[in-house]
Amino acid sequence: MTSASASLPPLKVVIAKPGLDGHDRGAKVVARALRDSGMEVVYTGIYQSPESILRAVVQEDADVLGLSSLSGAHLEYARDLCALLKENDRQDVLFVVGGTIPPEDAETLKGYGVHEVFGPGTPTAELVEYISSNARQARLA
């Protein structure tokens, strides 16, 4: 971390599971790794709708949204969330998606406005590094 960011409060991250997908091993491991790196992490639990995820982001005033999907419905949920973030003027939120995402879908997701996509086997250190370097860019700018 740079000395400039050291004076700021810790990054706030919402880790969310959309829809009916219950596979939350990855979401919980990521939540723990981010917390251990000094970020403040809220895990929504499973069964969230795009609306309830947006609510969590707004209420927590989150810097980062991490969406975890292993049910194949990542495109629909991420598209809806990008639209909701825009409608609510929260495009400053760093939006990352993880899970079983076929590589070609990663490009589609970025087209919707997702900032980065992390597939299976990503080291958590890589996530921490990415989020630390890219979060708050829009807010600070």
Partner: peptide, 17 residues
């Protein structure tokens, strides 16, 4: 997932699954 969780295919939110 809708069948597994006891929802019908015309559910407003979950029909996308």
């Amino acid at each position: 997932l809708p069948t597994l969780l006891g929802y019908d295919s015309d559910h407003e939110v979950y029909r996308r699954e």
